[in-house]
């Protein structure tokens, strides 16, 4: 187990280095810079600004100093905002986290219920109808689903605010839309997983013991059937916590996701690199957690490591 964790962490560090390097050079290769605006400043001013942000240093020097700073977890200062990248992560990640957790809980429950019910009534009209609902979230882009939900639940019914998550109610709509995306996949995985286990010996035994189909499905088949769901939810959680650009834009939630795209668009070099490194680190850790959980849930994989 320790060896597994160590080797995973080592691989993670490699991935982090690649991501940091690629994002550093790639964004700088894009035309335009953080200080280009339609109102061009005179050259002397431009020079002073570049001096301030060390943009006129040789690229290798910028790279090495940036990497050295990142080693001590200093992601640098935003070039477009009056804040450091560390502060941005600290300020905005909690909002994405809150939204993401709500969405993932919704997706896990809603998706599993749909999937397992569909599996229990496989190849019936119930199965099909449930799966159509489940797939809605992955069939319609969230930037379509979002405005429809806003239009209906916020503007017409007035149940929730249309934007800005001030309180719990404000998180409901965005969490629903975001959760729908994942609920679809969860439902499919749960359905397939349960169908898979239904054919296995211990489930047959349970059935032979005369347990009702309901108990068989929900108690016995579910236990192993949700393993693919957990495998999927791990990395998905990382993605959720790093935020979703579309949802955060439409619902105006001050999360991190917005900045992944915004930093590219506004050429805020340190922000993009910092956010990516943060995201990948998170991803690596969560994958590790999932692997450990996997061992706990399914004893068969323990020996195999």
């Amino acid at each position: 187990m320790v060896r597994l964790i160590l080797s995973r962490l080592l691989g993670g560090v490699f991935v982090l280095a690649v991501v940091a390097t690629v994002s550093f050079f790639l964004l700088r290769a894009a035309p335009g810079g953080p200080f280009d605006t339609e109102r061009r400043v005179p050259e002397a001013v431009q020079r002073n600004i570049e001096e301030r942000y060390h943009l006129n240093d040789p690229l290798w020097k910028q790279y090495t100093s940036h990497m050295a700073n990142m080693l001590v977890l200093d992601f640098g200062h935003s070039m477009k905002r009056q804040r450091t990248v560390n502060e941005m992560i600290a300020d905005h990640a909690p909002h994405s986290l809150r939204l993401g957790l709500m969405a993932i809980v919704f997706a896990a429950i809603f998706g599993t219920v749909l999937g397992v019910t569909a599996a229990a009534r496989r190849n019936s009209w119930v199965d099909y109808a449930l799966m159509v609902v489940a797939l809605l979230g992955i069939s319609v882009p969230s930037f379509v689903l979002g405005p429809i939900f806003i239009r209906f639940f916020a503007l017409e019914l007035g149940w929730f605010p249309p934007a800005r998550a001030e309180d719990f109610a404000g998180y409901v709509l965005p969490a629903l839309v975001l959760g729908m995306i994942y609920a679809g996949t969860v439902a499919r995985l749960a359905r397939a997983g349960v169908l898979d286990t239904l054919g296995q010996d211990y489930v047959r035994t349970a059935r032979a013991k005369g347990l009702s189909e309901k108990v068989v499905v929900w108690k016995h088949a579910l236990r192993l059937g949700v393993i693919p769901v957990i495998t999927y939810l791990g990395p998905a959680t990382a993605a959720l916590i790093s935020g979703s650009f579309v949802i955060e834009k439409i619902f105006q939630i001050p999360g991190l996701g917005f900045y992944f795209v915004d930093s590219v668009v506004s050429r805020d070099y340190p922000v993009l690199t910092g956010l990516l490194v943060f995201y990948v680190a998170f991803l690596v850790l969560l994958n590790l957690v999932v692997d450990i959980l996997y061992g706990v849930i399914d004893p068969r994989t323990r020996g195999g490591g």
Partner: peptide
């Protein structure tokens, strides 16, 4: 709010 629709809806 940077999203115009969000502004109008609010």
């Amino acid at each position: 709010m940077d999203d115009q629709a969000a502004n109008a809806n609010t």
